[in-house]
Design a protein around this nucleic acid. Sequence first.
DNA 1: GTACGATTCGAACGATCGTTCGAAATCGGT
DNA 2: ACCGATTTCGAACGATCGTTCGAATCGTAC
Lengths: 197, 197
Amino acid sequence: MRPYDERLDHLLAQAARVFAERGYHPTTMRDLAAASGMSLAGMYYYVKGKEELLFLVQERCFTRVLEGAGEAVARHRDPLDRLQAFIRHHVTFFAAHMAEMKVLSHEANALTGESRRRINAIKRRYVDLLEGLLRETAPVESASERSAAAYVLFGMMNWIYNWYDPAGALDPERLADLITRVFIGGFAEARTTVQGG
Amino acid sequence: MRPYDERLDHLLAQAARVFAERGYHPTTMRDLAAASGMSLAGMYYYVKGKEELLFLVQERCFTRVLEGAGEAVARHRDPLDRLQAFIRHHVTFFAAHMAEMKVLSHEANALTGESRRRINAIKRRYVDLLEGLLRETAPVESASERSAAAYVLFGMMNWIYNWYDPAGALDPERLADLITRVFIGGFAEARTTVQGG
DNA sequence: GTACGATTCGAACGATCGTTCGAAATCGGT
DNA sequence: ACCGATTTCGAACGATCGTTCGAATCGTAC
């Protein structure tokens, strides 16, 4: 079944690219047929429909992100190093897989029913991972503020697809450094000023 | 012509609400007719089509944001105060007009042709305003890093629509404080660490 | 009440969408 | 060379979309 898997991978890769370019809803199955080199009907041999295409793109990408983040974090013991490893992994992975990550970020509410639930379950685990890291670095903070801080960080990282060009002057490593320093530096600052007065 | 303007305002407000809920593309003109209380054909007396509806929602909202930011910034002389005023205005305006701002942030690429160009022109002025503030506070920084820092900040602020509940425990003022302190504290930190070594 | 512009809307149009179906083509084992 | 399973696809279907059109209704000045 190797050629089957390769064809499916190719279809999903092209779907991610076109979804990222034109958006999920405006993209037609005819667009995807042209991009993948398959016929319109031929795609339905590999996939149940358009929504499953989006689901598979998101699920495969998000699973890789979650696993990669876990491994990156596990390589460090110091809480700040673990947080930095999480940020660095997320940003560099984002820059290396812009199409899939844009689809994951921008089309978060395009799925419905069980597919949506499955993706949200992964998201829940991923957010929990980050909030756990924040708890390690700032154990006294309230849960709601920790959650807000997590989403503020996700905002910095996930907004990337709106402006960042991986082939531009700013390479992914420096972007990861910038975000890491802004958040870690600012997070410490925010805690002291908020708690101090 | 007062009743005409009121009807148009009402139509645009309902369109912003439904666009924010379901997304621009999945929303049908029949959805908007039901939400606004007009008939399907009746809406075309006020608007040329679906895309003009999106354009008017975005243009009116973005114009208010740009003008409000200019006024907020003009009230201060100290560069850090001006930057803080910009952030505070953006975040509180966002929280007070979630539907319109979500449509502005999330449907940035849904417009085409001249409409898209008009919105992008406003965006250009808004980004320039922030980059000017960053230049005031960090005059030695390179233009590309300043631009990246601006988009990192926009990421924190515009991602709000994905998680923030204005009726929840965290009120808009405290959210504005959090983002302001994270960015200003982290921005200073990032500059010193990047330039220092 | 009547005339006239402003406003509303039921009904329908053509276009395009996601999906399906049955047949054709291809492949791998014998 | 042959056969069954796997894979491909042209053609078409029903549904739904944005938009249009012409008539009906409304408000108002005379």
